[in-house]
Design a binder for these strands. Structure first.
Lengths: 229, 229
DNA sequence: GACCGTTGTGTCGCCATCGACACAACGACG
DNA sequence: CGTCGTTGTGTCGATGGCGACACAACGGTC
């Protein structure tokens, strides 16, 4: 069971999705809407009308020329390129969250203050952004939202804004291409996985068996409904 | 122009989306598939067949009983509840990234090592996960991925895994319900926004005009194509 | 002036999806 | 044994989206 998403940008009445972006990108690559549509296996007429709808809401996205020795063609405007960049950033952000592993802890809410809740979990107390009013929750946060520290250099509460902290021992290091996964036993049922660059890993000098401190921000952790019973 | 997404979980041949989850949730609330379908304005027959497709791929999701004084009814199985919890976590994660503001910096890649690139930006050098082979990139990261430090307590390079760091001065603090947005001038065109709990803010004692250090992890920052000309 | 590959329109029909509807089976309860 | 509100099926028609296709307009080039 793997997680996925479909990104879109909503502007006024239209929502531009990955399909639209693929079309624009193909226009940029092929130099004509006709070639772009056929390259994507789509009909020109549909692509044309869709592009018209997009431009009605977003302003000119492509410069079009017709006639001439080569028959004409279409190229992206600056706005069109900006839209591609914007969508790429959104896709990058979403892709990161859909594919990045998360640590999930069962817990119960002890207190709330606005959207911030203090949750008791097997690994300790955690502050999280609560998205439910239930008190039985699951607390989760991303593997790349956790920063590792040596116990000696771990920050005290008053000096940093990352006040969720677990102390634990490293159980394994999985080095991949420039990025490593460090698994830390923090006393919970499942281990905490932290994504770190291999570079950082070497500087920290962390190995299996070492004691480390893992810290992460309350605003980066979420509490959702547990749905038990 | 606001960003959005459509979450789904892919299992084998079916993809369960928000519509399916809404149906399951309605079943849990109303105690029968019939009531759930009508409550959602959907036809029973379609809801029934869709549920059958889901269960064919996922195993039993609802306990169904027919007959009896009350005519019978349906209730979620443990697997069904687990699916709801799983989807809620995914939705929470995606919702966080789609709505959380990001700082975007234009930059050029100086060097690469695997997927990790060193990028020169107006605010300084940054390590990021590169999603493109282009050298003209935009570096972006989430407002809740940045941790603030007092200059005195800011960690040195060897003691933490968060090695991207900007020094700057606070230009404003926007307190909302339990969460505050701190804007920091880091020398780039647009200011850096950091999401912090008001509690952390008070502990740090940060006010406008103060010098602070902002740190964030390379694995939490992305480099995407800039698309200029 | 003919040619060519575009852009710009409109129409037609296919196909998937979904609501609407009809009807059998079920089983506890009065 | 009849009643009732379910579950379990199937069919029909409306709707929307999209490909396929046809055809005019355009404007450099040969």
């Amino acid at each position: 069971m793997d997680a996925g998403y479909e990104a879109h940008l909503r502007v006024g009445s239209v929502t531009v999705d990955g399909r639209d972006v693929a079309l624009l990108r193909a226009v940029a690559d092929h130099g004509s809407l006709n070639a772009a549509a056929t390259a994507l296996g789509r009909s020109y007429s549909r692509a044309h009308s869709r592009l018209g709808d997009l431009e009605e809401a977003l302003g000119p996205l492509v410069d079009r020329e017709r006639g001439g020795a080569d028959g004409g063609g279409s190229r992206l405007t600056d706005e069109g390129r900006a839209l591609l960049a914007r969508f790429d950033r959104l896709a990058a952000a979403l892709d990161g969250t859909a594919t990045t592993e998360r640590l999930v802890l069962d817990g119960t809410v002890l207190s709330r203050e606005g959207r911030v809740a203090v949750v008791e979990t097997p690994a300790g107390r955690v502050r999280a952004l609560a998205l439910t009013d239930d008190d039985r929750v699951q607390v989760s946060f991303r593997a790349d939202a956790v920063t590792l520290h040596r116990p000696s250099g771990a920050p005290e509460g008053d000096e940093t804004s990352a006040r969720n902290r677990f102390e634990g021992t490293v159980t394994g290091v999985d080095r991949a291409e420039a990025v490593a996964g460090v698994t830390v036993d923090v006393g919970a049922g499942s281990p905490l996985v932290v994504r770190v660059t291999t570079d950082s890993l070497d500087r920290l000098g962390v190995e299996a068996g070492d004691a480390v401190v893992a810290s992460f921000k309350a605003t980066a952790t979420r509490a959702t409904r547990a749905y038990d019973t």
